[in-house]
Design a protein around this nucleic acid. Sequence first.
DNA 1: ATGGTGGTGCGACCA
Length: 255
Amino acid sequence: MKIASWNVNSLKVRLPHLEEWVKLAQPDVLALQETKLEDPAFPHGEIAALGYAHRAVSGQKTYNGVALLSRAPITDVQVGIPGFDDPQRRVIAGTIDDVRVVDLYVVNGQAVGSEKFAYKLDWLARLRDWLAQEIARHPRLVVLGDFNIAPADIDVHDPAAWHEAVLCSTPERDALRAIQALGLFDSFRKLHPQAGEFSWWDYRQGAFRRNIGLRIDLVLVSDALRPRLAAAGIDRVPRTWERPSDHAPAWIDLA
DNA sequence: ATGGTGGTGCGACCA
């Protein structure tokens, strides 16, 4: 089962890229972030035509928005973090075959010390508490999405320039480590030890061409699924296309 | 030090 994550930065604009990429990569499950569409505007017909007969969506106008697309049925859909009345549409989860999939668009946080940064840390703490329950209920768990956190300096093009900046700061990395301590490992890093592998490049200053990026799109896999992890990757190809998302898709293959 | 790009939507925000 191939499972992918992609921050599309507007599904309306990126639908042609999504159509092109799924033909190339053929994921069985595709978790989207930043769809920026209210649910009635979701392009169900176009996406069903790509083979995704099953879809679970949670969107809003202009900002945020997540969706799970699947060839196989999605059961036990959960929208948002239970018990957390968050108006921002950032979380959707569902069970596909025997795997629980949690799709996240983590808060960006703007700048260390800002109000949005405090919201990010609070959000991550609530997420951790919920994921503790999820992994107990569903030992075969995949948590993927735009984490807006580069896990370590190896995931940063210029660690000195990003030292203690938002997306790279110690409190954010500690929050990610606390989530991973539940029994979730970083699939890409487990299989690819080399530096210089990123998933996001700023639109400005030709950052992609110069590979000035961060690895912030992650696929965390529970220890129970470790024997089934056959491959993990980041596909830079759609980032080379005209009018791209600023993020590349990240994916895993489970046997 | 500033602003540099892009999406939404038409001004100002978010990233």
